[in-house]
């Protein structure tokens, strides 16, 4: 069985610069490592420590990220436009997963950069998808997935193939050292041309600025009263 960890698949929106003249320029020309990518690899490893772990990326250049974190090999997809629609990205990834055969799990960063892709990927595969994944642990034939839920977490038991969208809580602690990276670069990388199916495309129906909201001021002269007003306001906004 194979587990797949998807990494370096989305463009960093911070690389998009809008000049004073309105011209848009991208500082980068390929997807880069996302904040959740290391956690996605970790989850794939934890879910099935005995399975083959394969890294899947849409980037060129250095593709050793997953290999440096335990993946036996990497598949690099070529030919997807960096500004492709989420449906197209999901289709390319799903077809790459299907081409690998006996895959039990796909993990991907729960990316704020392109939030629709994890769910669309699961839809393309016909698998369930769990978002905001914190951690996993195998229990027999079941995979117990801990996901963020409200102010806490919730454990969900899953059997069968699944897409896990992983949300890292913090930056990666111990990054692989140079020796580990150099060894990872020696692991196999298969470069394949992406296959994108006939998928719906999204069209912008219009643009509008966000609704301006008046600020709420609380008089701090009475701290207890101000705190109560703040809590009440947050509750009315649905935050609490």
């Amino acid at each position: 069985m194979t587990s797949i960890a998807i990494f370096k698949w989305a463009m960093n929106p911070h690389d998009e610069r809008v000049g004073s003249d309105g011209q848009i320029k991208w500082l980068a020309e390929r997807p880069e490592v996302g904040d959740d990518d290391y956690a996605a690899v970790q989850v794939a490893r934890d879910a099935a420590p005995d399975d083959e772990l394969v890294g899947l990326t849409m980037a060129s250049g250095d593709t050793a990220f997953a290999a440096a974190r335990g993946a036996e090999r990497t598949v690099a997809l070529q030919g997807v436009d960096i500004l492709a629609q989420p449906t197209e990205v999901a289709s390319a990834l799903a077809n790459a997963v299907k081409a690998m055969g006996d895959v039990s799990l796909v993990s991907i960063g729960d990316s704020a950069w392109s939030p629709m892709v994890p769910s669309l990927l699961a839809a393309q595969l016909g698998w369930p998808c769990i978002l905001a994944v914190d951690a996993v642990r195998p229990e027999g034939d079941t995979l117990v997935v801990t996901r963020r839920f409200g102010a806490g977490t919730q454990d969900v038991a899953v059997t069968g193939p699944v897409v896990l969208a992983v949300a890292a809580r913090r930056e990666e602690g111990a990054k692989p050292g140079m020796r580990q990276v150099l060894q990872a670069r020696k692991r196999p990388v298969d470069t394949v041309t992406a296959s994108i199916g006939d998928v719906p495309t999204l069209e912008a129906a219009g643009l509008r600025e966000p609704t301006a909201q008046a600020s709420k001021l609380f008089d701090g002269a009475d701290p207890a009263a101000a705190a109560a007003q703040l809590v009440s306001a947050l509750q009315s906004e649905g935050v609490l």
Binding site: A174, K175, P176, G177, M178, R179, Q180, L182
Partner: peptide, 8 residues
């Protein structure tokens, strides 16, 4: 020295 203390 890399991040793991290995000399290269």
């Amino acid at each position: 020295n890399d991040a793991d203390g290995n000399e290269l």
